[in-house]
Design a protein around this nucleic acid. Structure first.
Lengths: 156, 156
DNA sequence: TTTCCGCTGGGCAATCTGTTCAGCAATACG
DNA sequence: CGTATTGCTGAACAGATTGCCCAGCGGAAA
């Protein structure tokens, strides 16, 4: 669960050059190939590295508009709403949260006009009382993990 | 920019079995290796596939608490706040948005108590007027892209 | 002291990659 | 209506990588 400096460097290398391969990594890191292989296996079975799936850009797919919607749910309808939202492809992510709303979801759409369609589909469900949407204008810090990995690796 | 059915299947295959390799993909899809290779190159240079970086789980790294913070920024301080937040490792993501808040950021922390430290560090900056935080309890729909890819592939 | 664990360095066969080529069909173009 | 272009196929090649195995070594724990 805790990662050391070598683990950190492995993750960093992978993040920078995903296609790098175990052998080249071992050369760069100055350790034996078996070591890198063992560390990688451990990181993956630990769940620290979930996988290496392709990172797809919704914008390039034709969905340049991102928005966050805060939903308020009617008491006891949570499970139904979750199931409903899971069927909407434009819902990329859904969280249940504390605070003023009950759920927060990330949406994408083909345009601002299309966002209306998506929102209608999202909120067009009985258990949802209210939805308030914030459209994303800029994304100064795209989803990242490297700084956290570096911090976790240093704290060893 | 638009993807067809074959592109979609390539992305799906990669998402399911990231370590699969071009040759095996061509076998599974029933097309020539060169075709898969060309499609992959195109998808990557189009930016549809951004990369294959490792997907790291913050929870497994020791940061099991996720929260979303809505920030209100003092007029004209946007750039400074962005730069400030970019230096905080626990800020995984930052968006500027329309709506009641000005920015929305995703935070992680080692515990609820640690979240206080993170928030203090985030809001301990002059340009931030107010912050309201929602702690994530459950994550019924983890960040996903497959359904969107399938939809985009079908619409061809 | 003895055992266990992680790392090293090496070797092996099997596989995959990067690259190139010619042929072919459908499409776009003059 | 010819002709160029584009995308896919099937094949080939050398070079590199992978998965797997092994013996040895040193530190840490029992």
């Amino acid at each position: 669960m805790a990662i050391d400096h070598l683990d950190g460097r492995i993750i960093l290398l992978l993040a920078r050059e995903p296609r790098i391969g175990v052998l080249e990594m071992s050369r760069r890191l100055g350790v034996a190939r078996g070591t890198v292989q063992a560390r990688l296996d451990r990181l993956q079975s630990n769940g620290v590295i979930r996988g290496f799936g392709p990172q797809v850009d919704p914008a390039a797919l034709g969905y340049p508009v991102t928005a966050f919607a805060t939903l308020q749910i009617r008491q006891g309808q949570g499970a139904d709403v979750r199931a409903h939202l899971a069927t909407v492809p434009e819902v990329l992510e859904l969280h249940t949260t504390t605070g003023s709303g009950d759920m927060l979801c990330r949406l994408v759409a083909r345009s601002n006009a299309d966002l209306q369609r998506v929102i209608d589909r999202v909120v067009g469900f009985d258990g949802i009382v209210r939805a308030s949407t914030a459209i994303v204008m800029e994304n100064p810090v795209p989803l990242r993990i490297i700084p956290l990995v570096e911090q976790a690796a240093e704290e060893t």
